[in-house]
Design a protein around this nucleic acid. Sequence first.
RNA 1: GCACCCAUAGCUCAGCUGGAUAGAGUGCUGCCCUCCGAAGGCAGAGGUCAUAGGUUCGAAUCCUAUUGGGUGCGCCA
Length: 596
Amino acid sequence: MPLALPKASRQECDQMNLFSDIRELVIAALDDLAAQGTLPAGLDLAAVAVEPPRDAAHGDMATNAAMVLAKPSGLQPRIIADALAARLMQDPRIAGADVAGPGFLNLRLDPAVWHNLLRATLTQGVDYGRSSLGQGLRVNVEFVSANPTGPMHVGHVRGAVFGDALARLLAFTGWDVTREYYINDGGAQVDVLARSAFERYREANGLEPEIREGLYPGDYLIPVGEALKDKYGATLLDQPESVWLTEVRDFATELMMAEIRNDLRVLGVEMDVYSSEKALYGTGKIEAAIDRLRAQGLIYEGILEPPKGKTPEDWEPREQTLFRSTAHGDDVDRPVKKSDGGWTYFAPDIAYHYDKVERGFDALIDIFGADHGGYVKRMKAAVSALSNGRVPLDIKLIQLVKLYKNGEPFKMSKRAGTFVTLRDVVEQAGADVTRFVMLTRKNDAALDFDFDKVLEQSKDNPVFYVQYANARINSVLRKARDAGIDVSDQSLLAADISILTHEAELAMARKIAEWPRLVEIASRNNEPHRVAFYLYELASDFHGLWNRGNDDSSLRFIQDGDIATSQAKIALARSVSVVICAGLGILGVTPVEEMR
RNA sequence: GCACCCAUAGCUCAGCUGGAUAGAGUGCUGCCCUCCGAAGGCAGAGGUCAUAGGUUCGAAUCCUAUUGGGUGCGCCA
């Protein structure tokens, strides 16, 4: 959902996004050309872009202005490009402007631009790249929302990490973010939990548990049974289910949620709000949400067509209460009541999302497992109807994680109780590694998680590679300090950075300049994985520069006996470190200063 | 049958919401340690971006169809 921003606020808050700065320069130049009559007035400049060129040999930045304006202006791209180039050359920041290819204008920037950029990076620290893109609007990110029937397993981890990183990314780009967990404690599965826990309670009282088919067999319920015994002694043993079900259910659910909160904390995820499905029942909230839809003529009694080609055997036409989701883009209308008159799961979901709309959020994001892909359209339809199209809902589907150990697939069986828990993963791989690796794929692609590879210390492990770059930089800082060089950010800022003129060093600065732009793109698309990939590239460039120092000692960061030069070069390294720390911060990964 | 997601180098994947000669890692081939850290470095080979059309100055990217894979499709959440 791209948002148009007034120029003034952009300049105040996003001081050092070079790409938007130069784009504004290009736009201003085009306005001048229009004022002079070189270009027709009133052209739509929205499609004018300033981007990094694919090949660095083409220059520092490229703009497509001449090509996108050729048709609406009725002029040849070459004519526009030449005029624009001449106009841009009047700005001190532009050192060169060459027309190339089909009409690209390649810009070379004055080295002082890069030097300013490095100073800005050091000044702003890990706030470098922060923006006002979200304009302080309120966004609700709902994620994890695992059923409170057991500890979190590895399948939940990716959703948790993704949601948390997305929340951090949005906060970094100017959104007011609420992280929310929807507790599915209103359905039959929590009754199953209660019955399973009750068997463990009998076990704690010295009786033989009967873990019947359909109950949860996992050992994690044994402590729950013991806790029940501590609370109730033997008093529930001879009671019928009708007496204990509600109490045991609430008790067990609460313990499971405590467990889940703990698991999330281990991963470094803190929720702002926990919402309960159960709490929606009996309050009239579900009825109110349905009535709201009814008032729009979107609720009716009707009979659904059976799915074609694959009709369930026990299918029979049945009149049901339906939500006319097709009026808001869905393929078929969806039932909100079961045949026994109770709500379907969809009804409380509608009420829950209505509640989020009512709480005043400007945008909603749901993070679902890929197996819930079938609910995307109906959920969007519901939010569209409930908010009169005001509140956009983006739903990100998280694909499966395939576990590997020694290159072999690692099978999980829920029934045998041998699933890999979140705790297992974090204990073996560590929270930082787990988080980073989970973000090295886009959310809609399946991800392989190999316990051996993620702990490997080599170049093909992106976590290590990025951390290693930061550690190297800190190693330089330590060495410089030992050599008596002042490497505080203040004194680096005071250093004469303009002596950095080597093409490799300016290329490094160019990569740093991409950070604010990358963050913006990642945020607009709700794609935190882009941050992880950028960090890998940044680290790779840094390692490359480091290695060139092996052959060309003038590229080393510490120049013996030349404090001024050393400080300038260290300022560059320190800037890289700042961006790595900012990026890792978005991913929720702790930067390390030393490899062990 | 329908909907959604996916298809890019031998393998695992990026690819900037339409830009220039499609990029990394890994694997393969060949070089390189007296070196701020070789847990590496440099270079090379490797592509019909699943297929066929369309849209336009320009398509891996957008549209249509087809093929192949995944997920889901009333009384489970």
